[in-house]
C-alpha cells in the first residue's frame, strides 16, 4: 500500500483545507441566505487556517499555530458582529435574502 494511504502527511491536511475553502467559496457564490453566506465565509477562513497549522507543523515553526490563534479570535469577534448585523437586517425586512438589500449598493 502506498504511503499516502497509510500515513497522514502534509498533503492530506492541505487537501482538506483546500476542499473546505472551495466548498466555502462555492457556497458563498451560490447561496443567497445571508447566514449561510456568512457560514461559508467562515468555512473559507478555517480552510486557510488548516493550511497555516499544517505548514507550521511541517516546518516545525510555531508561527503558523500562533497566527491561527489570532484568526480564531478574530473570527469569533467577526461572527458576533456579523450575526448582529444580520439580525438588524432581518428586523428591517423580515428576510435574510441578500437580494432584498440591494438598495445598500454604492
Amino acid at each position: 500500500m502506498p504511503d499516502v494511504f497509510t500515513k497522514i502527511a502534509l498533503q492530506h491536511y492541505l487537501v482538506v483545507g483546500t476542499i473546505m475553502f472551495g466548498v466555502g467559496l462555492i457556497g458563498f457564490m451560490c447561496r443567497r441566505n445571508l447566514i449561510i453566506m456568512f457560514l461559508c465565509s467562515e468555512l473559507m477562513f478555517q480552510g486557510v487556517a488548516i493550511h497555516f497549522v499544517a505548514f507550521g507543523a511541517y516546518w516545525h515553526k510555531l508561527s503558523g499555530q500562533a497566527f491561527v490563534i489570532f484568526i480564531l479570535a478574530l473570527a469569533a469577534a467577526e461572527a458576533a458582529l456579523a450575526l448582529a448585523i444580520i439580525v438588524l437586517l432581518f428586523r428591517q425586512k423580515q428576510t435574510v435574502d441578500s437580494q432584498a438589500f440591494r438598495e445598500l449598493r454604492g
Binding site: 457564490m29 443567497r32 441578500s98 445598500l104 449598493r105 454604492g106
Partner: peptide, 18 residues
Amino acid sequence: LKLATQRGYLQGYALGML
C-alpha cells in the same frame, strides 16, 4: 461604472474579487 458594477448583488462582488 457605478451603474455597471455596483449593482448590489453580493455574489457579484465576490465573483469580482475572485
